[in-house]
């Protein structure tokens, strides 16, 4: 596992309390379990760990109780609501967040990100990272989804500005189905 990751940024060698490891956007993190800053407490949610401990603030928290999809990330290929996922349960898992979509070396955006830009598929943008992650999980599974499948996949994502219509268009465009009506 360690061999696969690009960099190990934090190692905790002999913590008695133990540590957990998370691969986030291809980087392996080993985090000590505990209450101190930088550690993972049993009560910490994945959203909290990503945002507060790893400072990956692209993942947003809105409701913080599993009802709005703002905190959606991809874990081992599946979307999870990081606000109701305990970090301790993520030991050994591989997580992709919004920060992991852009190719950091080339600056190349994921086709979904580009399509969201081209269609102004957001207003306030607070729901956008969660929506893009839900859409990515869909496209990874089904590269050419129907409009119905897109709506299903995004049905747990709250967007109060109502950018739904532009989002659907952008997801279709990113999937190469922009011809579909809607």
């Amino acid at each position: 596992m360690e061999g696969d990751s690009k960099v190990t940024i934090r190692r905790v060698k002999d913590s008695q309390k133990g540590s957990i490891s998370l691969t986030v956007n291809g980087w392996l993190y080993e985090l000590a379990v505990g209450d101190k800053p930088g550690e993972v407490a049993p009560s910490h949610t994945l959203a909290h760990t990503l945002r507060e401990t790893l400072r990956l603030t692209g993942t947003k928290i809105s409701c913080d109780h599993g009802a709005c999809g703002a905190c959606t990330v991809i874990m081992d290929g599946e979307t999870v609501l990081s606000c109701i996922t305990l970090t301790m349960d993520c030991d050994g898992k591989s997580i992709t967040t919004i920060e992991g979509l852009e190719d950091l070396e080339t600056g190349q955006l994921h086709p979904l990100q580009q399509a969201f830009i081209d269609n102004t598929a957001f207003q306030c943008g607070f729901c956008t990272p969660g929506i893009i992650m839900s859409a990515k999980a869909l496209l990874d599974e089904d590269p050419s989804p129907t409009e119905e499948a897109i709506k299903q996949a995004l049905s747990g994502n709250y967007c109060r500005c109502i950018s739904h219509y532009e989002v659907i268009k952008a997801v279709k465009e990113a999937s190469g189905r922009s011809d579909t009506n809607g």
Binding site: G58, T97, E99, E102, Q113, F116, I117, F122
Partner: peptide, 9 residues
């Protein structure tokens, strides 16, 4: 701000 929004920045 489009790029900042879609990259989470």
């Amino acid at each position: 701000d489009a790029r900042a929004i879609v990259t989470g920045k």
